[in-house]
């Protein structure tokens, strides 16, 4: 279980945002993804999750090992906390949801509709979903938004438990989670949008530039 990313270039709206990204995420490792807003963290994570195709390069991991967590939690307001979790557990073929409930301190909330939760509680529920996917590689996009300090602690514990069990996590975040983690800065890989810059591959629109020059 290891995710090797090799010379990956990703595009947003057809325009390259990151080029030649290479890193390895091994079992038991937490990698913090750093980079300013709009630098392509979300695009990179979505590409790694298989939601969009890369324009070049490879990702070695099996998509069946990856789970993706974003700002939108996929929670249904009219379903209870338990029903929300049980649904995702069933989709991933996992039996119990108790560990997820306990891990994110949702015990007293299981019968509340998700729509009645506070923003922080919703976020905790969204993160608890990760535990019922049973997948080893977590790709998380700003997971701590609207969490208080205690909840961030819960989240850090969950990540610690996950990697201790042989999992791995790639987390785009701006805050210090207090985890033993490596940092990966995507700054050097940003595509500058200038066609004169050396580019890994001719981007798909290069023909257009020539056609009109």
């Amino acid at each position: 279980m290891e995710m090797r990313v090799d010379n990956l270039s990703v595009a947003r709206g057809g325009v390259p945002v990151l080029e030649r990204v290479s890193f390895t995420l091994s079992a038991g490792q937490v990698l913090i993804l750093r980079g300013p807003n709009g630098s392509g963290k979300t695009t990179l994570l979505r590409t790694l999750a298989g939601l969009q195709p890369p324009i070049a390069g490879q990702v070695s991991a099996d998509p069946e090992h990856i789970t993706y967590g974003a700002h939108a939690d996929g929670l249904k307001a009219t379903l209870t906390v338990e029903e929300n979790l049980r649904f995702w557990a069933a989709v991933h073929g996992i039996e119990g949801i108790d560990a997820a409930v306990k891990g994110f301190n949702l015990n007293g909330l299981t019968h509340r509709p998700a729509g009645n939760l506070s923003a922080g509680q919703k976020r905790r529920l969204g993160l608890a979903r990760l535990l019922v996917t049973g997948r080893p590689i977590w790709l998380l996009d700003e997971p701590t938004v609207s969490l208080d300090t205690a909840s961030v602690g819960l989240f850090a514990d969950a990540v610690r438990g996950h990697v201790a069990g042989g999992g791995a996590a790639l987390i785009a975040t701006h805050i210090d989670l207090g985890l033993k983690a490596d940092t990966f800065d995507i700054g050097p890989f940003r595509a500058n949008g200038d066609k004169t810059a050396p580019s890994q591959q001719r981007d798909r629109y290069a023909d257009f530039d020539e056609a009109f020059s």
């Binding site: 709206g13 057809g14 325009v15 945002v17 709009g38 500058n192 949008g193 200038d194 629109y205 257009f208 530039d209 056609a211 009109f212």
Partner: peptide, 19 residues
């Protein structure tokens, strides 16, 4: 239409340079 594609593309590039 091909010119329009290129126009759209140039606009995005400009926006990215500003960002």
């Amino acid at each position: 239409e091909l010119r329009l594609v290129r126009l759209h593309r140039l606009e995005i590039r400009e926006r990215m340079k500003d960002a």
